[in-house]
Design a protein around this nucleic acid. Structure first.
Lengths: 248, 248
DNA sequence: CAGTGGTCTAGACCACGCT
DNA sequence: GCGTGGTCTAGACCACTGG
């Protein structure tokens, strides 16, 4: 019956030792030659077994040291109740900062960037634009303890935010700019999916193999149901836990 | 400068053709020998390139046919506003069914199962139990169009639900059982992370390599902040989009 | 039944970074 | 320097399945 490949058997044995805690976070796995000798297989076979575990996100690879068991403690990111505090309260950016700081980590932000571009297909559909229209894209990378944990892009119809601070090439914390432009946001819809990162995302977020990302889309609507803002957040799956509080 | 491995170059070339739509969903990729010949490399190298794309969840493998470009259309799963309708409304299970049906898919459920077990560590911590306490675990697999899309487990403190329908080995649609037991749920907290599936999950959800899962934890609380219910949902990243509506 | 992917071997050379 | 992983080759046998 069990004609499972040797490579899988080796991988599963190691996986078991990791899950049972026999090999705790940070523990060193056998090297490729060691593993090969111990099981009487070629180095490639041992290597393939180890790479299965990499693909499953269970181990880190460090040159010269070998492979170690990955630890996964995640920071929390509150996405309801605290994301949009009342008018004069702290802004979104501040909320992020304080939320991360409350968890004992050091928040930072870099690569802030504002562009006028043609909207990507997904965004165009949501905002009711064509691929020839223009939109304002405000991007940034948010980090915790020096590690990038969110890749954010906010998209707006260029005709709506023209002349406002949102079209400026400068950061802003104010949340009521759209309202002043006559487009008050009254509710959001969040869309959450998981997928593997593309190479660009993997690089910007410093992801190792076997780490998926959460794609978090937040669409802001006016009272009459017009979408006026699309926020795209790419989050390493091993960095954050998204959190929603729901009254029932 | 560019000392990128041949294997990556080949993978990136194919990735580009996929992203540009040159190779649309369902399109057949070159076979391993073809790719090897065309690039003047060994079959293993061509194979490794193709497996990078598999790891990125971009292609499906079909025996004898070859590798095809994967298509990803996702169903929507509403997790707020509609998940907990008022008392006499439709139940959670029904809400799922109608929600999926509304999207033109056929919902089904199987492998319903009730067990009395020691709680897994995560659940034990949340419910305030030790690993020696007992809890009731109610599991099921939900499918759409025959494909499993949610692996669900509900956990309750055994002492709380003892004697209620929740401890019975039968399905139930009623939502107010906990309330009758004196533990009314008034709010939920959802925790969402992404990770690679373990082999058991991959099997039950029929996942191909390169498909991450969303781990969705919903914790139900009583008015005084006691956690009385933990729902764990494992969702293939390419099957569903979680959706939250948030009033601001 | 031909051609696909799945698996495995035995060997080679390289880049890198601790010791 | 030496052992780690990173890459690549040339060849082999197998299981499966669509044409």
């Amino acid at each position: 019956m069990a004609k499972t490949p040797v490579t899988r058997k080796i991988a599963d044995e190691l996986r078991g030792r990791i899950k049972r805690g026999e090999l705790g976070p940070g523990a060193l796995l056998p090297s490729e030659p060691d593993l090969a000798d111990h099981h009487g297989v070629s180095r490639q076979t041992a290597r393939n077994a180890l790479q299965i575990l990499e693909g499953d996100g269970l181990v880190d690879v460090q040159r010269r040291r070998g492979r170690t068991v990955r630890s996964h403690q995640r920071l929390r990111w509150r996405l309801s109740d605290f994301e949009h505090p009342d008018s004069t309260g702290s802004s979104t950016a501040d909320a992020w900062d304080t939320d991360i700081a409350d968890q004992g980590a050091t928040p930072s932000s870099r690569d802030f960037d504002v562009q006028k571009i043609n909207p990507p297909p997904t965004v165009a559909t949501i905002l009711g634009l064509t691929s020839d229209d223009e939109c304002i894209c405000r991007g940034r990378v948010r980090s915790a303890d020096g590690r990038p944990v969110v890749l954010s892009h906010d998209y707006f119809d260029e005709r709506i935010v023209r002349g406002t601070e949102l079209a400026d090439e400068a950061d802003t914390q104010r949340e009521d700019i759209l309202k002043e432009a006559g487009y008050e946001q009254t509710y959001d819809v969040d869309h959450i999916t998981a997928r593997m990162p593309d190479p660009t995302e993997a690089r910007k977020l410093q992801l190792s193999t076997g780490t998926p990302v959460i794609e978090h889309l937040r669409v802001g609507y006016t009272p009459d149901g017009k979408a006026v803002r699309v926020s795209v957040h790419i989050v390493p799956g091993d960095a954050l836990t998204l959190e929603y509080v729901i009254a029932t």
